[in-house]
Design a protein around this nucleic acid. Sequence first.
DNA 1: AGATAACTACGAAAAGTTTCGTATAATGCA
DNA 2: TGCATTATACGAAACTTTTCGTAGTTATCT
Lengths: 124, 124
Amino acid sequence: MDIRPTNSELEILNVLWRRGPSSVREVHNILDKRRKTGYTTVLKLMQIMAEKGLVTRDEQNRAHVYSALPAESETQRNLVDDLVDRVFGGSAHKLALHALGSKKATPAELAELRKLLDDLEEQV
Amino acid sequence: MDIRPTNSELEILNVLWRRGPSSVREVHNILDKRRKTGYTTVLKLMQIMAEKGLVTRDEQNRAHVYSALPAESETQRNLVDDLVDRVFGGSAHKLALHALGSKKATPAELAELRKLLDDLEEQV
DNA sequence: AGATAACTACGAAAAGTTTCGTATAATGCA
DNA sequence: TGCATTATACGAAACTTTTCGTAGTTATCT
């Protein structure tokens, strides 16, 4: 499946990824903190996402519960690939350099990265 | 400045970054190879970009010459930040992990990353 | 029960992006 | 000179994305 959510859809997916299955109200509460937004705006978006198959919806109770499809990593990969192609001329490691340079990582995160580097170098 | 070009604008900026100052005709020739597109479509986009301040325009000669205004690296940073926020919940190192995992890097690139890691760890 | 609050459904406006046709002016060349 | 080519300007259509109001339904509370 080719999953390329819009920006607004991504914001919602992000909440679902982090919180797990959630109602519109719960998602709205979170998004509204960052940026004032109408309840029915979020509702409508989530309805559209359900139509598109970006989320599933449990209609058991009155307040429906939405879940992100189990494709988080795939979606992320698509978006990373897009960015690499469009902005970094296909060079993934340039993106990695940028990502590290822009925000400071914790020692634990650096260690994790170092481990990945070790693995990658061994493979060769 | 807050620079968040649309996809079409990015394609044009990419050409300008690579070629340097160019006429609409030159940009169109390149874009048209990858994906058939009308000349006036590209013209209009570049006119809009000039209005927005994404490019400057030299009107000396009949065929105006456009130059990318935002630095490539600055734009890259903005877009990376966006992606980190919207898709990786603010965790830059997750993006880095993804970028490395998805496409294979050369040993030289891995070495470069390792060097950056060293620097970052020293700073702490 | 009756009022209030919370929910979904849905149409449609508003805003943003992309595409292109037409008008018009400047240039090149037979 | 006159015709074909190559430019820009610009309006507007075609799409996509985002926002929100309104209507109607279900639950909750006094």
